[in-house]
């Protein structure tokens, strides 16, 4: 526990989150071949509308590939992760996942978060449960996905990592 004192941030422990707190996350990401084509196949999603450029040609959904909704969702969560889960012990769950608009390769996702709740965790007194609402927005300002996410986050008061590096031999 005390071998890596400086690996995670200092401003995202359980005590740092408060209900109603809002965050616009600093980095956005464009969905390209790696994010959609590669990851959708990596996770065994056989629906070819995500990776066959011809599959939807002429359909009411429009020409071209559709991004797998959970890739958009995963990228939204990823873009929030440093600010919301860098000091997480465990991802507990998700809820109310909605995909509001189609996303196409080339679209850029920006993530937003709000803290919905903070709770003690009787099973983990060294941590607490934070419930977030996340939104993923495209480059036109439209919300494309939203979800709630529950994370078990370390308490600063109980984190040995926060006590600084272990004393070295010879230190006085």
């Amino acid at each position: 526990m005390d071998t890596h004192p400086q690996l995670t941030g200092r401003s995202n422990y359980f005590e740092d989150f408060s209900v109603g707190q809002r965050m616009r996350h600093f980095r956005s990401a464009t969905i390209g071949e790696v994010e959609n084509n590669c990851l959708t196949k990596l996770v065994m999603n056989t629906a070819q509308a995500h990776w066959n450029e011809e599959a939807l040609r002429g359909s009411p959904l429009g020409d071209g590939r559709l991004v797998f909704g959970l890739i958009t969702g995963s990228l939204t969560v990823g873009l929030t992760s440093q600010d919301t889960a860098e000091n997480a012990l465990e991802e507990l769950g998700l809820d109310e996942i909605r995909f509001r608009l189609p996303v196409h390769p080339g679209d850029t996702i920006t993530a937003f978060s709000e803290v919905l709740a903070t709770e003690d965790s009787p099973a983990a007194p060294h941590a607490g449960v934070v419930r977030f609402k996340h939104w993923g927005r495209n480059q036109h300002g439209q919300v494309v996905c939203e979800l709630e996410r529950t994370v078990l986050v370390k308490r600063r008061s109980h984190d040995h990592l926060d006590a600084g590096p272990p004393p070295r031999e010879g230190d006085s």
């Binding site: 590669c38 995963s74 990823g78 992760s81 860098e86």
Partner: peptide, 13 residues
Amino acid sequence: ALFSTATCNWNPL
């Protein structure tokens, strides 16, 4: 590693 990095989830966990 591929999935986590490609989705910007660089969490050391």
